[in-house]
Design a protein around this nucleic acid. Sequence first.
DNA 1: ACGCCGCGTATTTTT
DNA 2: TACGCGGCGT
Length: 668
Amino acid sequence: MSDELNPPQQAAVRHVQGPLLVLAGAGSGKTRVITEKIVHLVERAGVAARNIYAVTFTNKAAREMNTRIAARLPAERRRGLNVSTFHTLGLNFIRQEFAALGLRPGFTVMDADDSFSLIKNLLHQSDHKDVIEPKALQWQISLWKNELLAPDSFLTHADEDIRAQAQLYAQYQQQLAACNALDFDDLIGRPVALLRQDDAVRERWQARVRYLLVDEYQDTNTTQYEFVRLLVGKLGAFTAVGDDHQSIYAWRGARPENLHRLAEDFPSLSHIKLEQNYRSVNSVLDAANHLIAKDTTTHAKRLWSAIGAGEAHRVIVCAHAEEEAERIATEILQQHFRQQTDYRQFAVLFRGNHQARLIEQALRKLNIPYTLTGGQSFFDRAEIKDAMAYLKLLVNPHDDAAFLRVINTPRREIGTATLEKLGQHAQEWRSSLFAAATSIGIASRLDARAHERLHRFTDWLHGIRSNPGEALATLRRLFADIDYAGYLRTQEASTKAADRRWQHIEEWLDWLEKISREHEDGTMNLPALAQRMTLLGILDQQTREQDSNAVALLTLHAAKGLEFNHVYLAGMEEDTLPHRDCQDEERLAEERRLCFVGITRARLSLTFTLCKRRRRYGEWREITPSRFLDDIPESLLAWQGVGIAQPKAASEAQARDHLAGIMAMLKK
DNA sequence: ACGCCGCGTATTTTT
DNA sequence: TACGCGGCGT
């Protein structure tokens, strides 16, 4: 990338008077524009860093932006700068306004798992457990929250099913309140509600947010849009950066039309388009341009680059999925050795995670290192979940999810019968389980032994909580107290396995210490640490993967924002991409954009693969190539593979050469 | 408390 | 086909 900003980039950076929408094509340097603009605001426009807010969707993006700014601004000039995810901004807001929201200090942020177990319990106690799927209910509640809809608007709905779901939604909110807890969606929804109703709070925040920058604007949902609108007020000192061509999250509530809704809400809105691409050769961009031209729901943009022409993209047709996987693996191996290409420069992209399995196998067979997103993470380990639950419970004993997780870990001989009664009591009194366990009334519902055990636990928790100290030291003391290491030894057949799991706890403690140190004011207190931990959960998994020199296996969704020299787009088939469950135009258009995102990840080369036949749910099915391939001009594609343009004998000879080449490479 | 069997289902996922 | 979950049986 050149050092100089191009004219539209410069215009975007310098435009500080009034609202601005930057339509930034794939690879057009949007992160650079945002970071340069922050530098510009501080150094030229005289805005104090603490009054500048930049919002992203992922922790990774926020971190990347912080790193880039750190390289451009000295520490004292960027002190107080707010670069964070939407959710972290919401959390910080709530940490300052929690009393007005009816929360007590030390409130819990429940992650998706916690909220799921809460919903399951609620559903279990209701009489809808046979008709409503907990997963579906969680999904519906989240969609409603993303649309800023409260349960009461559905309690009188014509559809009985929806009424029932709304009822459970209301109960879920009550339960969260009883637990002094919020879920992820609340982190944005609750601030929005407060900003709407409380003039003083709104004015305070609007005075604070002197300039707001929002990344990936096409991914905002209704609630996030509203958050932005309320924070910037009438003045509208903000820059929104987005690309409607990369809108691939409508299925989970994103409203890409928010991009264009801005013009209605802010009549003085200026537009700037970034169309020069700094990533890809032109053959890649041509394919992308042709494909996206057929998306009538988005606005025209034409990518171009000064990087060179590039070559036609191969379309490899395989007999079946196993062959497709092997083909991709051997191609990568060949290129790795012949052209001295690092493995990290390759990516294999696909629509669904299940497609990864065969590709993984094929890569493993050839000893090619790879990373896979969406697998089991560090945080899915039982011991880590236990540890996190203990931390959360320490901070907020009313956190039911945490309470249930650790009440009997290690064994305290508190069984399901006791918990059932406790749950009933909590339900009746609209209280948390902890409150129920310590209430006077509970004694009559439980037999003396159970009551005694329960009390031993709550007393113990009280004891630890009332003996404050440094955060990490308190945690270590807690684990020693319950002899968690000993418990692990009872759980594992070998001491070695138990030690490894204890090792994970140590790693987790180190990680917490790191988070704590990264905090601006030195060390964090326990509540802040617990809350931050929940929001960061996934981060380290991602950063770990990036460090290794390995082929990246990614879903198309996970690939957004990344780039690779060589991209393989697997499963270019009808019913896969586009996915079979999208009849309507909206859905189909989103699949097209998904394909667009995949294509525009490639810097130098792009290879499409597909199968003629595929086994689906046990049955062999004939496959039609993806309609998206029809939308790319023939001149940009080079078809090869089974029955395509190559006589059988020739392809067999080629296959032999291929294999011989591979064997030779493997030997050296 | 644990394990097994049978049934139903089967994108994409961040915070 | 495969996997995960719920229910039931030991």
